[in-house]
Design a protein around this nucleic acid. Sequence first.
DNA 1: GCCTGCCTTTACATAAGCTTTACATTTCCT
DNA 2: AGGAAATGTAAAGCTTATGTAAAGGCAGGC
Lengths: 232, 232
Amino acid sequence: MTDKHLLLIDDDIEYTQLLSEYLSVQGYTLDIANDGELGLNMATSATHYDLILLDVMLPKLDGFEVLKRLRTSHLTPVLMLTAKGDDYDKILGLEIGADDYLAKPFNHRELSARIKALVRRMAMLPTNSTQQNLKLGDVELSPSTQQVTCADHPLELTGTEFSVLQLLMINHGKLVTKNDISEKVLGRKLAAFDRSIDMHVSNLRKKLSTYSQEEKIKTLRGAGYQYLVATC
Amino acid sequence: MTDKHLLLIDDDIEYTQLLSEYLSVQGYTLDIANDGELGLNMATSATHYDLILLDVMLPKLDGFEVLKRLRTSHLTPVLMLTAKGDDYDKILGLEIGADDYLAKPFNHRELSARIKALVRRMAMLPTNSTQQNLKLGDVELSPSTQQVTCADHPLELTGTEFSVLQLLMINHGKLVTKNDISEKVLGRKLAAFDRSIDMHVSNLRKKLSTYSQEEKIKTLRGAGYQYLVATC
DNA sequence: GCCTGCCTTTACATAAGCTTTACATTTCCT
DNA sequence: AGGAAATGTAAAGCTTATGTAAAGGCAGGC
């Protein structure tokens, strides 16, 4: 039913077996790593995990260290587990980027409920990563080369224009508020009377219109902008 | 620094005062509701909350009920609090849509860490994604795309019209007073002889009637308006 | 130091849409 | 029925958001 892919990093082999069975029944696919090093490798591999269950006490690389290193490159949600009921541990874990924390021994149904809650919430995130190539209608955007083409003609975009277009394309069909654009692209809150975003959008439209007639960026007055999905 | 807006729903006034102070220092803006009904109202008002802290034991409407009703229209993250350490409660809360659960008495720093973790994760979402899509009869409303369709035909609504319709649809079957509409949509009290709401409703009706005959918005004279539930 | 490119600000025209006005119509009360 | 109050709505008025050209400013490169 759920078909979500989880990674469990825990050195207690008996325990992992048990959890594995329990979570399989719930409809999750579960991979297991019995030490921190392997766990980190798997977590950062090409395999996409929807959620990582991470024990704190681990051989080779402890849970905090795994989390810290994972967070340098990945935003995968992490639920930490620990034998200690130590508050300090909890707080530290959450501070350095864990999404939830559960002290052993825990009720399996609580674990299951917390997993479900996290997965449910994560499903709301836009699926596209910022690394992915995007193609919508006659517009193609390639993050690796910073290149955008419209009807096969390359466009000369500035870095900011590129980022704005990318954000709009990732969220195509959806409203993207000016404040979101400002925060994500310019790294600052939208101030009153700040017209920068309008200008970048205006410039984008001008460049996009060079090789294509159809309107691509729609204004939602009082709200923001929206990249129109191809109607064909 | 954070500047995040939280809503605390808890009837223990002393306790809320304390938490309020504590969280203010952390840089959060905190609104407080001392009963479930008020809390639900505030949570569904035009004010956007980044996170709701919800006690289970509440006068008028208990925490579970508040959460259930909130979730019919909003996906705002909720952290539940409870005096009981009851696992069953926790699981129930998480099942019906809470994002986290903390048993009282808790370490303030743990609360703070969990809030931070949730807010951090939620910051990755587009702003308007915390509102549910609504569908009643042949009318569909989608906050993320700011799109309303009637019998599968898209309607061109203004921002205000959209918000009025959303409010009416959220409270379908119930009376929504003009003052409520004015406060939640326009952000101001309804003044005498103010006909704005009437006009917005009038325009809405006109647009809705384009593709559908049945009356959708009923006038309750002297009181307000009501979105009629589909009779089929 | 001086380009050069790009982001931001300024300024103004324009358009969108919210509010007000005015009047017709309906409802309710006595 | 008569009248007051509330509502429906077209149209005018007004406020504000937006589009965009042009000027200003800032930083990196040569």
